[in-house]
Nucleic acid binder design. Structure first.
Lengths: 252, 252
DNA sequence: AGGTTACTCAATAATTCATTTGAATGTTAT
DNA sequence: ATAACATTCAAATGAATTATTGAGTAACCT
């Protein structure tokens, strides 16, 4: 055991706790794993699917997924031949969002990269404009504008309701459950819709964000084919149990 | 064999961005760095001070700090002979909090540790920040900051009095009986407030502890007395600290 | 049964990280 | 100027992490 002097000497368990937190953080410390997490944020997926979407070999993806599982960030569900991985809960999504926000806000170096990235981001698998329009016609979706009221008043997507992201917490009752929610904000560089989706999911809503934002909707309306095809199977079907499988300790 | 190409090519910017996020996450992926962050959440500190509090050699602490700095999580300020490190902003605190919440909620293993270590914590039901705020307004409570004087000076809850936990025994007379005492310290994993509450109760005071600590209070925008840079004393002067001797680092 | 699919495991090399040591800055006091 | 101090740097070591390979397991399909 480790010994330390001073006021910390007496609590090694505090150190243990920090070590555990660090382990979780380290699980986030890989670009591939972050990408896998964002893919899983849309719903459960099987290993091969994740591997292909993230551009990894299956074996490598499998190992990354197990790393995440060891850290408690994802769980898995076996069905027939397949193993579906999913996020352990929405706290994970919050954590990833928080990481992104912090990284964006405090890394000048990243700012340039962020711009590039946001121009063509497909990471959170947004709803395309085309898809949203189709689903709006079906009435299977609630469109949520999370920009400030003034901007909403100046123009917004037809049929959208407006709850600024800052008021979302206390106005949650205005959002009817049941239908999936599609949130949007100012545009591709704006994180408000991301935050809204994270919050909504935390409260048990099904929520996704719209690709880009209002200006793009208004100006173009013509969706480019998304980088990723829609989620296979039925999305949003989460089952929470995990048949705890054999776990081997690795000796080294 | 590898799906590393094709129309879904993960070219530069996206990978670069993920890599940047991962770098930030990796900076959090060390128990020592997490501890340093918690210390800095109390206010800026110089390297030697941080090293001693975290039980590291100065050189090692310096390198960890630079790791954090590279990730954009802390900045530094030079003054005279000293280099003071501080958190880049509150987003960092949010990130660390988010990490903690996620780790607690989703790691069975961590839950065990948290439980073991903080079984007492639950026994001493904490006062929520809202409750404290309310009772502060009615004047029915004494707020007691049990952190070292230096941290108190760097910023504290408005209206709080400061008696470091180590001096509590011999300064008990300063605490008026009658009103209930709410003690707080650095944060949720800091035991100083717990100890203070235990001691106070032994002496017949009514005492509870505040949920979390000063950084969380400040983060919510609740009233604080901000520290003044003012005439700065020499850093590293701790009232009752033994002279430094050899330090043992440790591995786990 | 034999073959395929979906995933995991074990062993490897390449890389990165943490820590220690001692020396090199740069600032302040004498 | 010299000494003392605070911090950083540079090199070395061992430990941990990564991607790759190929083998292993279990479910599924004729």
């Amino acid at each position: 055991m480790l010994y330390r002097k001073g006021e910390n000497a007496k609590n090694g368990s505090k150190q243990q706790l920090y070590a555990r937190f660090a382990e979780v953080a380290r699980a986030l410390g890989s670009d591939h794993r972050l990408e896998l997490l964002e893919l899983m944020a849309q719903g459960e997926r099987c290993v091969e699917e994740l591997a292909e979407l993230a551009g990894l070999t299956v074996a490598n993806a499998s190992q990354h997924l197990q790393h995440l599982r060891r850290a408690g960030l994802v769980t898995r569900r076996k069905e027939r031949k397949y193993v579906f991985y999913l996020l352990t809960g929405d706290a994970v999504l919050n954590l990833v969002t928080s990481l992104r926000v912090t990284a964006e806000r405090h890394c000048a170096e990243a700012a340039g990269i962020v711009d590039l990235y946001f121009r063509r981001r497909d990471a959170l698998e947004p709803v395309s404009r085309q898809e949203l329009r189709r689903r709006q016609r079906e009435g299977s979706v609630v469109v949520l504008d999370v920009r400030p009221a003034k901007e909403f008043a100046a123009g917004h997507i037809e049929g959208a309701i407006n709850i600024p992201v800052k008021e979302l917490e206390r106005r949650l009752t205005e959002v009817a459950g049941g239908r999936e929610i599609v949130a949007y904000c100012r545009g591709p560089y704006c994180v408000m819709a991301l935050e809204a989706v994270a919050k909504l999911r935390e409260r048990g809503f099904r929520a996704r964000r719209l690709q880009d934002g209002y200006p793009e909707w208004r100006l173009e309306g013509l969706p480019i084919a998304a980088g990723l095809p829609g989620p296979r199977g039925r999305p949003g079907v989460f089952s929470d149990r995990e048949p705890r499988k054999s776990r081997r300790a690795h000796s080294r």
